[in-house]
Design a protein around this nucleic acid. Structure first.
Lengths: 226, 226
DNA sequence: TCCGGCCATCGTGTATGCAAGATTCGCGTA
DNA sequence: TACGCGAATCTTGCATACACGATGGCCGGA
């Protein structure tokens, strides 16, 4: 949430547990609905229940786990419908970001965005999904920053963090990275022209396509989890 | 999906503390920057440090307090710039909600929205700000629900919760409730016509006006706090 | 007088213990 | 055999205890 990275302070135990759990959940290593036993997690991380509790609280606030009073914590259920709903909001948030960014980005920022886009050509050509994923993140990051609104940047990043697993999964579909990059190209062009509305439209299409690509993976993921 | 709030269970102690603190902070009863001592809060609420800690963690996740490792929690600083940034995102979120709602609301939902709007006339005439505030919430709530997207509803409500104090404050400006209601009227008309884009435009204007009304209060609030 | 380091004190982070509610399993009865 | 009730067990929610790091004041030296 609070995107403050402070290298000077040693990460708190509860922070480490939180991040480890967040990674495992977003990566799909823990199936939705799984009971998260505090004692068990504690022994697993070599800690007592206290930091585990705090980690679970934080995760519940960010929506990754659900806590029922006196009933413990479970990994938040992710139905196909809910994933689609999350994608819709993501798409709209990304669209509003790019609309503002197209109007507000400085020439320097526009150039940096173009550079990132150009760099990604190589990753696509090599079929390096991880590298493309990284550049994809930076591309969208630059758009967030382009809104020149720190609060929007925070919220957009928090939401994307929650969607990380799904947004990465859709890139694994055959030919999707190349298409994704093409869509970025159209997006970039609208941004360069300062046409916010057009950029927003392109972004919605881009996210909709990603959602479609993900959907074709959904059944696989579901069967994998059970 | 599992958005079942369970009224049968007694509120947890940490929940009660969280809500009490959230109220005091959003109501401006605790000045930004104030150190929140765990022990002290514990004795104040008749609880030990443990539930207080959990409450503070939750509040930090929702942005009301800031926690630095080993340095404790302070009430989050709200600069004028940050408030404006939050208002901008609020406006955009509200706009995207109403755009979707104008396309998706059922006739029944549209009627309910109209009814709420009509009810509010009386509150404005009587100058009953609290009552208008309540109806205002219901009006915007209905629009969220009109998106037919549970995730969007959740997020929109969470954001509004964070802005509650500011959005209420602006209503105290002279004549603002009447203007606010007029803006709702234009909004409602666009929704009734199913014109999402126009409704979104009206909503941005509505929120922008609210932001302006708030700004004229900012210096007062600030001086009031010190 | 001003600056820097050391020490006391305070507050947070973590561990552990205890009690209450929930789940589950077993037993008795229909 | 199936269903319902109750007790045991498990897990959470909260309290308390302890340790480490941070903050602030004091003293000594320049």
């Amino acid at each position: 949430m609070n995107a403050e990275q402070d290298p000077s302070t040693v990460p708190l135990l509860s922070e480490r547990i939180r991040m480890a759990l967040a990674d495992e959940i977003t990566a799909g290593l823990i199936a939705p609905g799984t009971q998260l036993d505090e004692q068990q997690l504690g022994t697993r991380f070599g800690a007592s229940r206290t930091p585990v509790r705090e980690a679970l609280r934080q995760l519940s606030a960010s929506g990754l786990v659900e806590m029922r009073p006196r009933r413990g914590a479970v990994v938040a259920a992710m139905t196909a419908e809910r994933i689609f709903e999350m994608f819709e909001l993501s798409a709209e948030i990304e669209a509003l970001c790019v609309r503002l960014a197209a109007w507000r980005m400085t020439p320097l920022e526009r150039n940096r965005l173009r550079r990132i886009h150009e760099e990604s050509a190589d990753a696509v050509a090599r079929g390096d999904i991880d590298e493309y994923d990284r550049l994809n993140w930076r591309f969208h990051d630059s758009i967030y920053e382009g809104t020149h609104n720190a609060f929007i940047v925070e919220q957009a990043k928090a939401l994307r963090e929650r969607m990380a697993a799904f947004r990465r999964a859709q890139l694994r579909e055959d030919g999707r990275p190349a298409l994704s990059r093409e869509e970025h190209g159209a997006l970039l062009e609208a941004i360069m022209r300062g046409d916010g509305e057009e950029a927003a439209k392109q972004m919605r299409a881009h996210m909709f396509n990603a959602s479609g690509a993900l959907e074709r993976f959904a059944s696989f993921v579901n069967s994998d989890h059970r």
